[in-house]
Amino acid sequence: MIKHLLSIDQLSPSQIELVLKTADSFREVGTRTIKKVPILRGRTVCNLFFESSTRTRISFELAAKRLSADVINFTGDARSSLAKGESFKDTAQTLQAMGVDAIVVRHSSAGAPHRLSRWVEASVINAGDGAHEHPTQALLDLYSIREHFPSFDGLRVGIVGDILHSRVARSDVAALTKMGSQVTLVAPPTLIPPAIDSWGAEISYDLEEVLPKLDVVYLLRVQKERQNEQLVPSLREYATFWGLDRRRVDLMKPEAIIMHPGPMNRGVEIAADVADLERSIIIDQVTNGVAVRMSLLYLMLGAADRALEEVPVG
């Protein structure tokens, strides 16, 4: 397995398959009364979060704890060393000196995990860096899709929303195209990144035209703080053209599913009642996130030379 997970590009399709298959066992662990296995006993995982993200941090923390690792959380709040002007590199080396085995890093600056991986011995896992990538989100998304469709091959996935600023979109496009799915990015032109051709995805500005063809409708969070960048005239106008409401759900294939990385803006990219539909698997994504992150931590830290069938889940 790889030493660091910085980008989906680092994983081959067979490695992705391995992560997903291994996650099956850990998903089962999460259904037990005693939700803990001793695989990473004595190992230390640090959640290094320079940008607040309660759900991702909790998911990683639960994953590490269910594997019996010791977990420390470092958040860049006012009392941390960051406020005192300590550099990113010094912070990294301090953690290294304390002997952590893995650093799960969330940072508002794209490439921060790449920088970190050059300075530390520990495994670095990217938990979201700026508008670059969020590889574990893509892996849990694949896992969740796999629960509904027999194969990724030829599956049609539409990713709708602020592609320009979305690390989720970058990781999902890379992961899905790698697995043979066809991705269509749906957004107003101002939210489509420049020079998009090399992504291997189709582009559409018209959600209603695309909806009937899709197996998966993946909605991205509209970041309200970007309102002043004049990318769309208003949230109302966004919802009018690119929001998923009941009327548009009726354009979808009967078996098509709805996904969202959370947190949702109900009433903007997704209507409140649509979020709670049977075909919306947003809550399953959260559950699967823990299992997929357990799988990754196990493969990257605990079982590099152990065969898959020896996974001690009993």
Partner: peptide, 15 residues
């Protein structure tokens, strides 16, 4: 530079 790589790397570009 704004282009294929800025898009992929998630960095804001200078056109």
């Amino acid at each position: 530079h704004e282009g294929e790589y800025s898009s992929r790397l998630g960095l804001r570009g200078q056109p």
